[in-house]
């Protein structure tokens, strides 16, 4: 393992701590290889000779832009088109039919929260495009948000590899909604124009995004620490309009706190916002931001503590 990986265990612990502090996400114990591969690519892009050099620079200077890049790279998810179909299908089987009578000729705003490289918002756009005959006067605005990252940049361009378009995407949708460009496939302009992307810190104040009739936050919640789960769900609660919907992944729940939502009877993973406008509790104004001294101090303490432990261990063993 040490022949392949260039960072010492203390750096992995420090990076895991930084990710937890900044994004509320717990990286697993088996993430060393993932950290190495994701960040090696970032180090090259950022102009460092080695990954170690970039990480040393990060913890030495506490550079906020680099911290965001590092954490965003670590959070990139391998997403597929039409992922988790049992949950995804509920958007047009359950939610849209319930919203349509209320918004007959209006616009339904849909948010894909944590959209990574954009497969979810584009899958939504394709699914809803197929309902045009059923709901001819209904308009849709689809917004994808995530941390600034190379994945989000790919989403904005709407360009996908040969492998990407063969995971979860029916062949008929590929030839209907994509153009072939050399070895890649790009979303056709008509569909692309229905989706916009925004960069945001997912645990920050989300008010600038506006409010939505439907928010999809699927298959991410279990990766968050318990306090971060509360924070992110509280933030999402503030984004969903009264009587709007929150769609989680299959089998995911709100963990005993309702956040102003009620579950839909017999429908796993769908939650409806209560009619009265419930003000979400204000977000902690001292939210940890990348250049926050506390964040780096905590991660650095982790780094130092483990280094001290690692350095001390051999002599203790010898003594014994």
């Amino acid at each position: 393992m040490s022949a392949v990986l260039s960072l010492t265990p203390s750096y992995y612990e420090a990076l895991k701590q930084l990710t937890l502090e900044l994004a509320g996400v717990k990286l697993g114990t088996d993430h060393a290889f993932l950290i190495e591969t994701r960040l090696s690519s970032l180090a090259r892009t950022e102009g460092f000779d080695t990954l170690k050099e970039m990480i040393e620079e990060l913890f030495k200077t506490g550079q906020s832009r680099l911290a965001v890049q590092v954490v965003s790279s670590l959070l990139e998810r391998d997403t597929h088109f039409n992922t988790d179909l049992p949950s995804f299908n509920k958007l047009y089987d359950v939610i849209i039919p319930q919203l349509q009578p209320i918004h007959k000729n209006g616009t339904i705003r849909i948010l894909s929260f944590g959209c990574s490289s954009g497969q979810e918002p584009y899958s939504i756009a394709m699914a809803l495009d197929k309902t045009k005959e059923e709901y001819p006067n209904l308009n849709f605005e689809i917004v994808g948000v995530d941390y600034p990252s190379s994945a989000l940049d790919r989403a904005k361009v709407g360009r996908y590899s040969h492998f990407d378009v063969q995971r979860g995407l029916p062949i008929q949708d590929l030839i209907t909604y994509f153009n072939k460009e050399n070895e890649d496939w790009t979303i056709k302009p008509d569909l692309k124009n229905k989706v916009t992307f925004e960069e945001t810190h997912l645990l920050s104040n989300l008010d600038q995004l506006g409010d939505f009739h439907v928010v999809l936050f699927r298959n991410s919640l279990p990766h968050y620490s318990s306090p971060a789960q509360v924070r992110v769900l509280r933030g999402l609660s503030g984004l969903v309009k009264p009587l709007g919907y929150l769609l989680l992944g299959s089998g995911e729940t709100l963990n005993h706190i309702n956040f102003g939502f009620d579950p839909i009877t017999h429908e796993d993973s769908i939650f409806r916002k209560r009619p009265e406008k419930i003000e979400a509790e204000p977000i902690d104004p001292n939210i940890k931001v990348p250049n926050g001294k506390k964040t780096f101090d905590k991660a650095k303490r982790k780094l130092r503590g483990i280094d001290e432990f690692t350095n001390a261990k051999p002599s203790q063993t010898q003594t014994g």
């Binding site: 040969h162 492998f163 063969q166 995971r167 979860g168």
Partner: peptide, 15 residues
Amino acid sequence: EYIMKPFDSDIIESK
């Protein structure tokens, strides 16, 4: 359905 080579097990399963 239609698979474009090269393929892997994920692609066959998905298709």
